[in-house]
Amino acid sequence: MTQRPDSGAALQLRRAAEAQASVLPPLLVAAEQLAATVQLGAHGRRRVGVGEEFWQYRPVQHGEDARFIDWRRSARSDAQYTREREWQLAQSVYLWADDAASMQFAGDGNGPTKAERARLLALALAVLMTRGGERVGLSGPLAPPRPGRAQLLTIAQVLAGASSEAELGAPEVAGISAQSRAVFLSDFFGDLDHLRASVGALADRGVQGVMLQVLAPEEEDFPFQGRTIFESVGGTLRHETRKAADLRARYLDRLAARREALAHLAQTAGWQFSTHHTGSPAQGALLWLHAALGRGA
């Protein structure tokens, strides 16, 4: 005789499961689905010992907190040293997904906005890094790097609610610690001098990084013809022309010059740079981001 399951208990279990699932932001669900399409090994840099066991001494880097200096070891030489531990080798990774108004552009409207794609890639990368034992967080004060799945929920909530009134974005780098890694996702249409100063300051602190330029296909192809009104998403910039096609060559030259400047900046700082279009699958960009971090590790 077969015993039928208690339908009441089954219904209660289903409701509990649905309630638990509803807590997860849709962005986190999408990021985990994207990360699941990428088969990768552990990315963590841990090599010996567990927890905070001693690994090795290393010279203190400019900008590091003095409380980590090992004064007994430093007294035996003219240099100052810190005790490097296993959890420090699993370096912190700081993510910046530009949320400025320019990132709300979605081209023909059928695809994601640049901001949506940047947030998805940032969180999917966080999923992969967390699986590898890394400490992941956001630049700025809202989600400093921490390990574990609970951190992913924090990052997702901050990213999902992020919105800036600024027309063009700029990374917040003051809180990024020395010897860590940084990932910037943006259209990088903002002040190039500010970006140079930010990346240069991070490179001086031993921060290795990745810059991924996220563009809509129309920003790359410039398919406009005839009378066209160009207006920034924030509404602060507006230009009307009767012959949009005449602007194409000059626009593409300026875009190429900006991309060349970004690539040169990355090369000078020892960083990695690439461009991703929202009309392309996100998997390729995620693979590149993960590999680029590995090359800089």
Rank of each mutant, 00 (worst) to 15 (best):
L11H: 03
R14S: 06
A17N: 02
V23I: 15
V38P: 01
V38F: 07
R46T: 05
V50R: 14
Q56G: 05
V60G: 05
V60S: 04
G63C: 11
F68P: 00
R73E: 13
R76M: 09
D78C: 01
R83P: 01
E86S: 14
Y94Q: 08
A101N: 03
M103V: 07
A106E: 04
R117H: 09
A124H: 10
L128P: 00
L128W: 04
G133Q: 11
G133Y: 09
G133W: 10
R135P: 00
P147T: 14
I155N: 01
A156Q: 05
L159P: 03
L159D: 01
S163Q: 12
E165Q: 13
E167W: 03
A170D: 06
A170K: 04
P171L: 02
S177T: 11
A178F: 02
V183L: 11
F184P: 00
S186T: 02
R196V: 01
S198A: 15
G200E: 02
G200V: 07
L202F: 04
A203E: 04
L215F: 10
P217Y: 14
D221I: 09
F222G: 06
F224G: 05
T228D: 00
S232I: 12
G234K: 15
E240V: 15
R242W: 09
K243A: 13
A244D: 10
A244H: 11
R259Q: 15
L265S: 06
G284F: 05
L287T: 00
H290V: 01
A291W: 02
A291P: 00
L293W: 04
R295D: 00
